[in-house]
Amino acid sequence: MSSQSVSVMKVSQPGPYATLQDRGRVGGEPMGVGSSGALDTHSYAWANRLCSNSTNSACIEITAGMFEAQVLRETVVALTGAHATFCIDGNPHATWQSHRVKKGQVISVAPPDAGFRNYLAISGGFTGPEILGSVSTNRRERLGGHKGDGSVISAGDVLQGVALNNTPKTLLRAPEQVIPSFPDKIILRLVKGYQFDSFPSSSIRTLLFNDYAVSNKSDRMGIRLSGSAVTPPTSPLFSEGICFGAVQVPADGQPIIMLSDRQTIGGYHKLGSILRSDANALAQAKPGDSVSFDIIDVLDAQAHLQLEKYRFDHTMPLSVN
């Protein structure tokens, strides 16, 4: 984005892991640069929509709440994602809704009651040095983010945003049916792929008939699961491209669902990949939450995706005032 940037927010408390994210970078994979980008794309897209932003505007992805920042110029903000108490100057305000904030006001996000990640959008979007068309932060690759070097947001950081002459006049809220319910138990629909057919049939049975717990070692690179071991094939494998949502199984048999900050290539055996919409739910799972797997045909998965896209395109935000 070539628009001019101004200081829009000063962060006093970032919480455990807050980063700038957009839809991610494109075209970097052949040189080893991953896509990064928002983990829960549904909540991310709604945060921008409620601020009347373009679909690729950068938001702050807040992990496990405990976020506080001061607004440096009048603007409109919206918080989506996890169910968390969202305050402006200490007064609770609705999430999944846009609010006008004045210079000097303090916004805060408490640890979520349900869900794990929040998306804070600001009118016009946050800005940072663009790399391959994206400001998404990837700490491991040391690129992107508000500083451009993969830094996560720290206390005291002043964030830049697009300079706007006027902010949206209408405040918006999301219709009830698009707000996720954040169940403690998630079903991940798996599209069979990669080495699925090389896994012993007993491993597939183990995967499909057991529940797995989300491990606290999970991060933006991958959600690690713990449970009954899914024995992978022993045949050697050349490192190969890992797509979003791929379910890789290292020798210990504990599956890892590869997400936005994954490496571009890897040599572990993979069972296929989960649906993007289920990855959104998984990104909202807390350590200890339960997940199970189900198989879905790729054609059904693509029909489902088309339906989701249709729903998103045809569900309009509602006016608040």
Binding site: P30, E240, G241, I242, V298, Q302, Q306
Partner: peptide, 23 residues
């Protein structure tokens, strides 16, 4: 095609299924 990853003896091809489905 939305992205590709060449590696050793494989090429991962990601695509927009809305424009062209799997088959």
């Amino acid at each position: 095609i939305t992205s590709m990853v060449p590696s050793y003896q494989s090429l991962l091809v990601s695509y927009d299924s809305d424009v062209m489905p799997y088959l």
